[in-house]
Design a protein around this nucleic acid. Structure first.
Lengths: 324, 324
DNA sequence: CTGAAAGCGCTTACAG
DNA sequence: CTGAAAGCGCTTACAG
């Protein structure tokens, strides 16, 4: 069946002509300005509907200097932690009438930097960055033209960029203390990350072990080198995130070990994965809902004129499930 | 540290004034028009760089009538199949110089319809819809103002909308034939879906069972009602997608069954999940890379003037792993 | 209650 | 090789 090919969209001018009024009147009627009589408004709305009028956001953005759009950049769509943060940002954005446009960078620094630029060029009113892979200078440059808030850890504060993050050191300490409380002493840490959050969790692990008098048992390995830990009698493993905890889980189960009877495994992030996997994962929950809400609040604060940088740190919570 | 608060971005006019030339010359220089002398261009580029000039996409879109943006709408960020399709669309889009903006609808029909509208209002040059939840009338309406291609199955062809999908019936038949070849007769189907793709897979399963002379064993259950199947001696389960196959896997393992020795489990989609899970999932692979490329090709075809609807159907392939 | 006019930042013929 | 001018679709004072 032959389809109607897209024709030039009707504009305000078309609606005005059809309704026999001026463009400005249509514009006022469309957004419900009280200065337009009800009967006129109804007639104009009917015509707009009938001709299939839709406002051009680029025209509106150009004129108004704001788009009511909020850009969100994430490293990759594959990481459930990131996509779950996005959802919480969107919910918060919707509350204040902002729509979210999402872009991701497939874990590639250059592509991520491009996405940040693109969203800025597109005219979003603010940017939420959920990725530690965007170079600092790109963030700083972006912050010169629009409010930017970083969700998650950076190595150092980035000038002009607000942030909201969880206390990774404390999260790691929660895990260690929990395992120590259950009588474990040989507690190993598994990580493949050199990103700021990963490093902070590692630091938190090491510090907590020392505080517990277990400094001698501190041991860090890569996820694929976990066999050595098990051979050395480590019976509790804290992984830097849920994904790597699942890798450890698989490896342990492949070796015929029972979890948590033979080895306890703990993750970080409390992603859907943590609930899906068997046994379900003990993990650390960041306050995702709160993070999204705070990120949007920081953005609107900037839009409202604030010019000093704000860095919020939220407290993580331990979620105990079957794995350890 | 006090941050530079965002100031009005420099415009073409600012660059022109600083460089001491006209706006039009700057515009031409910036996009490398051969009519601008090299020395002039270099000087202008240097000034643009120095003042931090970035073009306004809304102004450009308004003027040119195209944005070089491609909108992608997905149901939800949680479904790995959908996000993996997005990646393939993006790769293909990048080839032809289009940038992707992504929106999702949290599985909510109303929200999805909003997103489709919003992307249209934003001025994207085409729309790829990776969700069967968008109402037909919304798709039709969208197709009146811009090219729309549906990736995945709809119940019936939607007027004005191109599509690319895999042959779900054939995919289901591949699974049944594979299991029959391994000697299974009591092969059940697990599905929770009333969406077109789910229904097609179910139909494919039933037809293939009949063709194999196993019509008497046809049995369909919900994922959470799989216990009945196992009790009734079904030792092979074909789930409508990888996610539900994992649910079945968990249930079987929880009952102490070994997979695939006691029960074979097969999924559909070949998502990352299929590789991650233990035992790794036998599943059906849609040609994701090809789907993204075809979707973009259909879009550019429309932009090039084609007006008849095109529906492409790709052949799925069986991927045999450990689970069945 | 309604209309004419200016202008957002760009691009693109059109003159020189 | 370069500049003045029009116009994309909107919104917003400003007059009436």
């Amino acid at each position: 069946m032959p389809a109607a090919s897209p024709r030039p969209r009707p504009t305000l001018r078309d609606v005005a002509a059809t309704a026999g009024v001026s463009k400005s009147l249509v514009s006022l009627a469309l957004r419900g300005d009280p200065g337009v009589s009800e009967s006129t408004r109804d007639r104009i709305l009917a015509v707009a509907e009938q001709v299939g009028y839709r406002p051009s956001l680029s025209a509106r953005t150009l004129k108004q200097g704001r788009s009511m759009l909020l850009g969100v950049v994430i490293s990759s769509l594959e990481n459930p932690y990131h996509t779950e943060i996005v959802a919480s940002v969107e919910d918060a954005a919707e509350q204040v009438g902002l729509s979210v446009v999402l872009a991701h960078g497939s874990r590639d620094r250059g592509r991520l930097a491009d996405r940040v630029q693109q969203l800025g060029d597109l005219g979003v009113d603010g940017l939420v960055v959920v990725s530690s892979w965007v170079p600092d200078e790109v963030l700083t440059a972006a912050a010169r033209r629009l409010p930017v808030v970083m969700v998650g850890r950076t190595a150092d504060p980035v000038a002009g960029v607000d942030s909201v993050t969880n206390d990774d050191e404390q999260g790691a300490a929660l895990v260690v203390d929990h395992l120590v409380g259950r009588g474990y002493e040989r507690i190993a840490h598994v990580t493949s990350s050199t990103r700021p959050a990963g490093l902070a969790r590692r630091r938190g692990y090491e510090d907590a072990m020392r505080r517990a008098g277990l400094g001698g048992h501190v041991r860090v390995a890569a996820p694929d080198a976990v066999d050595g830990l098990l051979d050395d009698g480590y019976r509790a493993v804290f992984a830097r995130n849920d994904v790597e905890a699942c890798d450890v889980l698989d490896r342990a189960l492949d070796r015929g070990l029972r979890v948590p009877d033979d080895v306890a495994v703990v993750g970080y992030d409390d992603t859907l994965l943590a609930r899906r996997v068997r046994p379900a994962l003990t993990t650390v929950q960041q306050q995702r809902e709160v993070m999204g809400a705070r990120a949007v609040a920081l953005l609107t604060g900037r839009l409202g004129g604030r010019s000093d940088d704000v860095h919020e740190v939220l407290e993580p919570r331990l979620v105990v499930r079957a794995s350890g």
